[in-house]
Amino acid sequence: MTPSGIIATLAGWYVAETGRQPWVIYGILRTVDAVSPVPSQALLSTLIAFVCVYAVFLTAFLIFTFRIIRRGPVEAPPYAEASGSIKNAFRPHVLDSPKRLADSQFS
């Protein structure tokens, strides 16, 4: 069932886009009149480039995601996380200096 939400969203979008044709803005601007003066070869080559680049992104994303899932949850770090207080945020390298690091372990 996991991908059903994604499929529903995309399907709804497809219906809206195709159902609106031949208008790009319903009743105001026709798709034919909205087309930019870029030749179709240029559009095709950039479309191919987009598909290729995003295929690389997706592959890497899936590899890294499955690796992280397989590794399981990471143990909490031995020091305190930077707190959300603005006072701490204004100090540079809160966690960098050894003294602060030691302090933070007690707090």
């Binding site: 930019s36 870029v38 240029a42």
Partner: peptide, 10 residues
């Protein structure tokens, strides 16, 4: 400008 610079923009 966007059609003129289509290739470098993409």
């Amino acid at each position: 400008l966007l059609p003129a610079f289509y290739l470098p923009v993409i």
